[in-house]
Amino acid sequence: MASSPIAPWEKKAFAASVFGLGLTGVAQMPIFSRYYIADIPGFAWLGDFVFTHMLHYALAAVFLYFAFRFAATYVLAGRRDHPLTASGAVRVAVYAALIVTGAVRMVKNLSWVYMGEWPVLVVDWTHLFLAMVLLGAVLWARGGDRRRYTALSRR
């Protein structure tokens, strides 16, 4: 079996960016202040909407870097004998949909872009829904033996 072309630190950085995106995404809802989380010493920043929004953008750039690096590495390595597992395929699909809806949200926020009321609503709700689906998919993948994105070599 060939060694993984993705270093362990890269996997950890990717996971950290996903966690950060989830946290700063939830922080876009006015709940951390309502439920005293932002009152905990050291957590006040979770109640700062503009700061967490900025952080969400920055983490999105980090996430995109690793997501595309992994995808490109997988494709370029030509490891067709390592197909995506079922849980890997589900997570990749949800990540892809989150990337698309997140990108649309970024575009609609540009000052010269107008998207219309209903498209904004649909994209916002879809992004939110997908984030919840991802949480479920990640928890599902952590159970049993479903953590791997790709299957072991068939050779």
Binding site: P5, M54, Y57, A58, A60, A61, V62, L64, Y65, F66, A67, F68, R69, A72, T73, L76, A77, A103, M106, V107, N109, L110, S111
Partner: peptide
């Protein structure tokens, strides 16, 4: 004001990632 520059970073990041992966391969 940060939105435009960070959105640009989000565009550059995947391009840099793919370029890096190609060079590494």
């Amino acid at each position: 004001s940060f939105e435009t520059s960070l959105a640009a970073a989000a565009v550059v990041a995947p391009i840099a990632a793919v370029a890096g992966a190609v060079l590494r391969a």
